[in-house]
């Protein structure tokens, strides 16, 4: 029968009602798992790892800085994927998931920026240095702001979904361009600054390996952030679906009045 064949398809979850039901079932698990991972990871990192010989206790900031920075980028990638799915397959849930994810991305970017600045203060001697990586996150932050502002500004939900999706696509290209531009631009200013290696710890392309003592709590925190992201996005997507339905119902009421 066709119904069984359909139920096996992933796109089945694009139906709002099915999505709501599935999310409600999954959410408690995600909330619990993310809280557990984060609490264990952060407590482990904060209380039970030694200070770094060079950076002292500031190394503990890594447990917040790295996962949030990682998820700040992944969140944008998720929004990009969701936007593409909306543009190609016109599944409303996909567009709403992108909308739901954006504020989460903003907060993660903010956490990455704030922890970066606080960490930088004793290392660089100032709260803000125009380090390429930090600057890129600032630009990413601006992209998030523009994306959310566009969603808020447009009355018609489908038009808003279309426009934000195109903005997300174009923005992604320009975000990558900006990343290279910033790298290029800063090279001329801070050539060979050795303190910059602090920032180098924060990326996957670093030459310095984070040593094992820090590795496990860090991994736990990363997993915790990923789960927290999933939980938040699922929950907020459900909220967006309901808000969208309210809007549709009210529009229908007005049309039939």
């Amino acid at each position: 029968m066709t119904i069984t064949a359909k139920a096996n398809s992933l796109w089945e979850y694009a139906n709002p009602r099915k999505f709501l039901a599935t999310s409600e079932r999954l959410l408690p698990f995600f909330w619990l798992a993310s809280t557990t991972c984060l609490v264990v990871g952060l407590v482990w990192g904060f209380f039970f790892t030694p200070d770094d010989y060079k950076q002292g206790s500031t190394v503990k900031i890594i447990y917040l800085h790295v996962p949030s920075a990682l998820m700040a980028i992944n969140c944008w990638l998720m929004m990009l994927a969701a936007s593409l799915i909306w543009l190609v397959r016109r599944h409303h849930v996909s567009a709403l998931a992108a909308r739901a994810a954006a504020p989460v991305g903003i907060v993660f970017t903010l956490v990455a920026l704030v922890t970066g600045a606080i960490w930088g203060q004793p290392m660089w001697g100032s709260w803000w240095a125009w380090d390429p990586r930090l600057t890129s996150f600032l630009i990413l932050f601006l992209f998030y702001l523009g994306y959310v502002a566009l969603w808020e500004a447009i009355e018609d939900p489908d038009t808003a979904a279309d426009l934000t999706s195109v903005l997300c696509l174009v923005g992604s290209v320009f975000a990558i361009l900006s990343r290279y531009a910033v790298n290029f631009w800063n090279q001329g200013l801070h050539q060979g600054a050795s303190v910059m290696r602090v920032a180098a710890v924060t990326g996957s392309d670093t030459e310095e390996k984070v040593s094992n003592i820090y590795f496990f709590p860090l991994m736990l925190c990363i997993v915790g952030f990923v789960l927290l992201f999933i939980a938040l996005v699922l929950y907020r997507t459900c909220t967006e679906i309901r808000a969208r339905r309210i809007k549709a119902l009210l529009a229908r009421e007005r049309a039939n009045a």
Partner: peptide, 20 residues
Amino acid sequence: LLLSLLVLPLYVPTLIFGAE
């Protein structure tokens, strides 16, 4: 205002290379 908020981040690469 929204226009500025959307366009300014997109101007970053051009500004960086042009001013450079």
